[in-house]
């Protein structure tokens, strides 16, 4: 498009950036906008003071155009908010709903599992502090361990969880529960936004 190598390189970098940013909008709009920007830069460079080197005129034209991220933002917002319906959109929508529902169910299950493990660790930790001889992890033999959460039965064995280790387990349990709560909150917000 330009004779000067630096001018051409500057323009190509800008165009590539614009194309990347425009990735979210439809192909027609992307093509039109790139076509417009190209025509504008050509015209702008042709109109600019001819005593300036071509590379500088291109830089001036691009500076006047501005950062593509700024002026393309409303188009991307448009594309996201009102994507045009396509043929077979009913099936696509149904498949998308199933996929989203499945992914959300999976995330809910992970959050629930994490919360459950966290709760068990918390119970184990508190029980271990309150009744270290009945609640905790016990070594029954060389390679046989038992986890006792409720401490209802007298099982014997040597307690493995020292109070400090019990506290660490409790802290880990709290972190897991906090993370599960955050994940659940995010999931609920997404679901509420879709309703």
């Amino acid at each position: 498009m330009f004779e000067d190598i630096e001018a051409e390189r500057t323009w190509r970098r800008y165009r590539l950036r614009a194309e990347l940013i425009l990735g979210a909008v439809s192909r027609d709009i992307r093509r039109q906008l790139i076509e417009d920007l190209t025509a504008h830069v050509r015209e702008s460079v042709a109109q600019d003071a001819c005593d300036l080197p071509e590379a500088e005129r291109v830089r001036n034209a691009l500076a006047r155009l501005g950062d593509p991220a700024d002026f393309v933002a409303p188009l991307i917002a448009d594309a996201v908010v009102k994507a045009p319906p396509r043929a077979g959109s009913g099936w696509r929508a149904a498949l998308a709903a199933v996929a989203i529902g499945g992914a959300r169910a999976g995330r809910a299950a992970v959050a629930l599992g994490t919360a459950g493990i966290g709760a068990l660790m918390g119970i184990l930790s508190i029980g271990n502090i309150v009744a270290p001889d009945r609640i905790g992890v016990f070594r029954l033999s060389a390679d046989d361990f038992q986890v006792r959460l409720l401490g209802l039965a007298e099982g014997g064995g040597d307690p493995v969880l020292a109070p400090s280790l019990g506290l660490a387990v409790g802290a880990l349990g709290a972190v897991l529960m906090w993370r599960a709560a955050s994940a659940a909150q995010r999931l609920l917000s997404e679901i509420m936004m879709d309703l």
Binding site: D28, S44, D70, F71, P74
Partner: peptide, 15 residues
């Protein structure tokens, strides 16, 4: 305005 803003508007109006 940045010149680019105009082209975003033109693209929108054409759409």
């Amino acid at each position: 305005i940045n010149d680019g803003t105009l082209y975003a508007i033109l693209a929108r109006l054409q759409k």
